[in-house]
Design a protein around this nucleic acid. Structure first.
Length: 378
RNA sequence: GCUGAGGUGGCGGAGCGGUCAAUCGCAACAGACUGUAAAUCUGUCGCCCUUGUGGCUACGGGGGUUCGAAUCCCUCCCUCAGCA
């Protein structure tokens, strides 16, 4: 079980300062949740992840079910022991893969719309590579092509075997090009699955319900109200968030307005650096984002003054640290020149150093925001 | 010295009479990436400008044939391989 305590509510915004108590320690919120899809923050050991101030990670049900399979993990004593991670863990339900391996793949897009699309998905439309039914979703394994079925009961069962502190209801993350009728139908399904998940859960893990509803205000509000009414331990907010930052903030407002203030709110998959103050001010307590880790592996370092692309040859001649103001283990010991060389030479240690720096940088950034809330600045 | 192969944009390497400022790859430069299938994808990449069915200079150097040459001929220079 988890316990969520709000220490302070901002009077300038919806921001809150809190403590999330899990069986694996207390986590100060707001906090960035590190993405560890395959039971690993890519390139780092769990000790290293702890060293750069991460307290909560999110692993993925779909991926771990396919490989190595929840049985293996259960036999190892659960995810925590399996990956030697001592702090908090969440598992994502696989609901995002319904989108990312479905329409996301078909249209080559992420859940944030970057360019306008002529196509709008309406009711009855199915993605090419999977089949969405009222009971769940038929996937084709990307590893061997074998068909696998994931529905609310299956997802909960797997997540119980994995044994994270916080688990998520199985949902359908809708595409940014989902039209009104598609979204309505999908939302009904997601809501039905939410109730099924609650009933199916036997463990003491905390279960978060997922709010969907796409870009439609009434659906978002209805979803928040419905999910709130079911009595979950917390909430996750999923799906698309418009194609600009102002819309995102507006949409989060619709939802957070309806949710029980006393329960923790997790925003799924959002966390560009510039988004973080906005989502925290919107009343979000935890959020996960691949940005620090994913971009790190692309050679991008986040620093106080913006971003650096260490692929660029200019950095070979740069003898300074990634960020003079950064207190991370990487900035203390390594120069841009060396890191740039590693990235350009495709040496894996380069990916690791940037992942460490970026996670530390993001965590410090959020830490500063917690301070600001405490001081009444935000 | 003889014989053979070859010299093309930063590099590698296509093209072998017109539609070639020259396929493609690499590098370089710019951009994208938001509940992570993919250390990925996209664009630019001779110079100049009033950015255009624009101008200029280019395929080792020089000369020639042709309406027209990176592409054919002559000559010189250079590289590589084999033989002396």
């Amino acid at each position: 079980m988890i316990e969520f305590k709000i220490l302070k509510k901002s009077d300038k915004s919806r921001a809150r300062l809190g403590i999330l108590k899990t069986p694996h320690g207390e986590i100060e919120t707001p906090t960035l949740v590190g993405v560890a899809t395959q039971a690993v923050v890519k390139t780092l050991t769990s000790e290293e992840v702890a060293q750069i101030k991460s307290k909560l990670l999110i692993c993925n049900t779909y991926h771990l079910h396919l490989r190595p399979g929840e049985k293996i993990i259960k036999e190892n004593g659960g995810l925590h022991k399996f990956m030697n991670w001592k702090s908090g863990l969440m598992t994502d339900s696989g609901g995002f893969q319904v989108f990312s391996l479905g329409f996301g793949r078909d249209f080559g897009m992420g859940k944030i719309l970057k360019s306008s699309s002529e196509e709008i998905l309406e009711e009855g439309r199915q993605p090419r590579h999977l089949k969405i039914t009222d009971d769940g979703v038929y996937f084709k394994s990307y590893l061997d092509g074998r068909e696998m079925f994931l529905g609310p009961k299956e997802s909960i069962k797997i997540q119980e075997d994995l044994g994270a502190d916080i688990i998520l209801a199985f949902d359908e993350c809708t595409s940014p090009i989902a039209g009104r009728t598609y979204t309505e139908k999908s939302l009904e399904r997601t809501h039905r699955w939410a109730a099924t998940c609650l009933k199916a859960k036997k463990s003491k893990q905390a279960l978060y319900g997922v709010v969907q509803g796409g870009k439609f205000r009434d659906l978002r509000i209805a979803s928040a109200k419905f999910i709130d009414s079911l009595g979950f331990d917390g909430y996750a907010i999923g799906g698309e968030f418009g194609d600009d930052k102002a819309t995102m903030v507006k949409m989060l407002g619709w939802v957070n307005n309806e949710l029980d203030e006393q329960k923790p709110r997790h925003l799924l998959g959002i966390g560009y650096l510039e988004d973080i103050p906005k989502i925290i001010k919107s009343g979000v307590d935890t959020f996960d984002c691949t940005m620090p880790t994913h971009y790190g592996r692309r050679g991008i370092a986040f620093i106080s003054s913006g971003r650096l692309d260490l692929n660029k040859a200019v950095f070979l001649k740069d003898k300074g640290p990634l960020d003079k103001k950064c207190g991370c283990p990487v900035c203390g010991e390594y120069k841009r020149s060396y890191i740039s060389h590693l990235i350009r030479a495709k040496e894996i240690t380069g990916l690791k150093l940037l992942t460490m720096h970026n996670l530390f940088f993001f965590n410090s950034y959020v830490e500063k925001i917690r301070e600001d809330i405490k001081k009444g600045k935000i």
